[in-house]
């Protein structure tokens, strides 16, 4: 399936956010490979604009702990679960904002607060499709999977045409 504008925006956003603020070089993985047997956490946030939809982020527990420690400049062993969750929520917020800034250059968007998904809420593990982008990466200590689902079509960015 050719890469959609949304897929490209998601891939570029994950890379930029992880490299700039988490000091991690993400290595792409096929989405199916990211279903880890060990514990994982999931965060979801809804957005309103053109398009509207939601972003879901899944991280293996070890990956969440390590990237939280790196972001805060602290040692992973001393980090509380609350602090890890706060960092993962901010990671989701930044990826989502970055994606929307790439696909919406003129309209204003609004992000809801990210919320942690409970163990009983199963994150959607479907593959990429129309209006849905999925991107999975290894972040050294584990795996991160980001998916964006939109309710409206995403148009490619307007390109300058010279007449």
């Amino acid at each position: 399936m050719p890469e959609t504008p949304l897929q490209r925006a998601l891939r570029d956003s994950v890379q930029e956010v992880l490299e700039k603020m988490f000091f991690v070089e993400p290595v792409e993985e096929p989405p199916g490979a990211a279903d880890a047997p060990e514990g994982e956490m999931a965060v979801q946030l809804a957005f309103e604009g053109l398009p509207s939809g939601a972003l879901t982020l899944r991280l293996t527990t070890a990956a969440a702990r390590q990237i939280a420690a790196d972001f805060l400049g602290e040692d992973a062993s001393g980090l509380s679960p609350v602090k890890v969750e706060e960092v993962v929520c901010e990671l989701a917020n930044m990826i989502c904002g970055s994606v929307l800034s790439r696909v919406e250059s003129t309209a204003t968007f609004r992000l809801a607060s990210p919320r942690l998904l409970g163990a009983e809420e199963r994150p959607d593990r479907r593959q990429a499709a129309d209006g849905r982008a999925v991107h999975a990466v290894s972040v050294g200590s584990g795996t991160l999977t980001a998916s964006v689902e939109t309710r409206d079509p995403v148009c490619p960015p307007v390109e300058e045409s010279g007449f």
Binding site: N93, M94, C96, G97, S98, L100, S101, E104, S105, T106, A107, T108, F109, L111
Partner: peptide, 9 residues
Amino acid sequence: ISTDATANR
């Protein structure tokens, strides 16, 4: 300090 880099904003 914001994620929103749209020209409008």
